[in-house]
Every structure is written in structure tokens, then in C-alpha cells.
Simulated assay, not measured.
Amino acid sequence: MARVAMVTGAARGIGADASVRLAEDGMDIAVLGTDEAAHAETLRRITETGRRCVFVTADVTDAASVDRALARIHSELGDPGVLLNCVGAVDRGPLRELSDQDWTEAVGGPLRGVFVTGRAVVDPMIKNGGGRILTLADVAGGGRPGAARNSVVETGLAGFTRTIALELRPFGITANVVAPEPTATDLTATPAAAGGSTYAAGALDAVRFLTGDGAAAVSGQIVHVAMTA
């Protein structure tokens, strides 16, 4: 039976490319999101690989919604052995211009989504003898003016990933982050806008490695992918 990957943030850009890469590697793909139309091209590309693909409407920040999505994935494809969360960077401007709502949406949403989906897949992965939890995210985007949001998300994702990596290691579950360098921050952009085909290929190669059998002993890592000229 093919491995199953559950993917979030795959409407476009490198997130979409990563979901297609996993399908090319022989995985069946469950794409989670709130707008199926926005994912139409991604779903078409996955289907063209010959793998099974389902779109599941879900709010990844809502635990009940994710649990319902997992039940459907289990029914139609099987339990996910791979979770790939794709988190794009969104700078909201200087600190003095950030509203409470800006901060909550920009920081709380991504971190909660990674937490909720990660927690949801742990039991199925333990039951099936292991799995891969991977975040494709701009966690290297902080440390510059106007990037307070990215700095907080960077720290939160790094700490969360390293902690659960230790916690889940006895169960054969790894947790890692693939992170672009600060010069290439938009994971929702096209590969060209995100630094060209070399950068995009490097990020996708890292995803392929970390979700594969060869990375069984690699966990708790933040893997930086540099943009090249």
C-alpha cells in the first residue's frame, strides 16, 4: 500500500510543488484547505502523476475540523505517514503599525495550525510504526526591520519542532523544518519569484530527503536552503 501524505498550504508556489513531488515519489496525497477552487491546479498536477488525491475541506487551526479531515483521509486513502505543513511568510510592517488582529492572524494562525495538525497525526503514526512531520516555512526571515512576525514564528517553529522530535523519537516519528534563506521569503510565490529553479529544486530535494527512508535518523533539524544566483 502506498504511503499517504497530508499536506497543508499547497494552493500554489513551493507548497504546491512539494505536494506534487511527494506524489511523484509514490505517495497518495490528501490536501487540506478551505478553498478547493484555489487548489484546482495543484490537484490536477497531483492526479497527473497517477497517484490518488483527495481535497479535504478543513480549517487547520480548528481541532475538530482536522479530526474530521483525518477520519475522511483514513477512509479514502489510509492513515497519513507524512505530514507536510507549508507556511509562507507574511510581514505585516513595523511594530508601531501592527494591530492586535494583525498579530493574532500572522503569528497565532501559523503556529496553531502546525500544532493542531501535528498533534492529530501522532496517534495514527504511532499505531503504524512511525512517520514524518515536516514544515516547509520561512523561519529564517526574522531579524530584519518589519519582520517581528517572522521572528516569532521562526522561534516558535524551531522550538516546537525540536521538542516534539525528542518526544516522538521512541516511536519512529521524525520532525524537521525546511527553511529558505531570508532573501527568498515567499513560499506562496512561483519558483521564479522565490529565487529561481535552483532554489526551488533545492527546497524540494530537502523535502524529498526528509520524508524518505534515508532520513529515519534525522530529526529536530532546521534545514536552511540558500537561494543561488
Rank of each mutant, 00 (worst) to 15 (best):
P182Y: 12
R3G: 08
P80F: 06
T47R: 15
D102A: 13
M27H: 15
L168W: 11
A194M: 12
A184C: 13
F55G: 05
A137I: 05
V152R: 05
R44L: 11
V114E: 05
E181I: 11
G220Q: 00
R51Q: 13
V223C: 07
D35V: 11
G142W: 06
R44E: 14
E154S: 15
E154K: 10
V7D: 08
G109F: 05
L43Q: 11
V225H: 05
I14R: 05
G142R: 06
G195P: 14
T49W: 00
L22V: 00
R208A: 15
K127I: 04
L98Y: 10
L84V: 07
G156P: 06
A147P: 03
S65H: 08
S65A: 10
T34A: 14
H74R: 13
E48C: 03
S219R: 00
R45M: 12
T174C: 11
G81T: 08
L32W: 06
A40D: 15
L111D: 05
D205Q: 15
H74C: 00
V116D: 01
R119A: 06
T104S: 12
H224G: 03
A226I: 09
S197Q: 15
P191R: 11
G141D: 03
C86H: 08
Q101E: 14
P124V: 01
L22K: 05
L136Y: 07
M6L: 15
G202E: 10
D59Q: 11
T61P: 00
R119M: 10
G81Q: 10
G131S: 04
V66N: 02
I14M: 13
I73P: 01
F171K: 06
G81W: 02
D102G: 14
A16C: 11
T228Y: 04
T163N: 02
D35I: 02
D62A: 07
A226C: 10
A71N: 09
C53E: 07
F160W: 14
F160M: 12
V207D: 04
L83Q: 05
I73K: 00
A2H: 14
R132A: 05
A175C: 08
D25I: 03
S75R: 14
E48T: 09
A11H: 01
